[in-house]
């Protein structure tokens, strides 16, 4: 038994580092998104140059987050990758189908409010979370 790895610096430690790195990038992206969104109203009084810079910084950090997410996914084991693939596929499909139907409701004025992109993001987030949760229970 003792010849087996303890994984102090093995695969699981690397995965934890990847997850933490993804968390930092995501937090930075959310923070810069909030700054780019609320800054013009509360901080720099609609100065266009600062607003454009804030959006560029947010975009750059967003790409960093995408790279960190890709690295995180590649570091997962095959079952975890399967769970992520199913969840991402489901959230993409639901987002596309329901999102476009929702948009059509707005176009033909069957709903009294505007179909906002944030509603789609919330729907995709909830679908992804539910799918990951269901798969984690299935393979528990």
């Amino acid at each position: 038994m003792n010849q087996l790895k303890t994984d102090s610096d093995g695969w699981q430690a690397k995965q934890k580092r990847n997850t933490a790195r993804l968390g930092y990038w995501t937090a930075a992206w959310v923070l810069t998104m909030a700054i780019a969104n609320f800054g013009p109203r509360f901080a720099w009084e609609s100065n266009e140059l600062i607003s454009a810079l804030a959006i560029l910084v947010n975009l750059g950090i967003g790409f960093g987050m995408i790279v960190a997410n890709k690295r995180h996914l590649k570091g997962l084991d095959e079952l975890q990758q399967k769970i992520q693939l199913e969840a991402m596929g489901l959230s993409l499909g639901v987002g596309l189908v329901v999102g476009l139907a929702y948009s059509n409701l707005d176009v033909v004025n069957l709903i009294s409010f505007d179909a906002e992109i944030s509603h789609l993001v919330i729907l995709m987030g909830l679908t992804y979370s539910f799918s990951v949760f269901a798969a984690q229970r299935r393979y528990r």
């Binding site: 087996l4 790895k5 303890t6 994984d7 093995g10 695969w11 699981q12 995965q15 084991d77 095959e78 079952l79 975890q80 984690q136 393979y139 528990r140």
Partner: peptide
């Protein structure tokens, strides 16, 4: 740890 997968797997 030896197989470099999660315990869940």
């Amino acid at each position: 740890a030896e197989l470099e997968v999660s315990r869940q797997t």
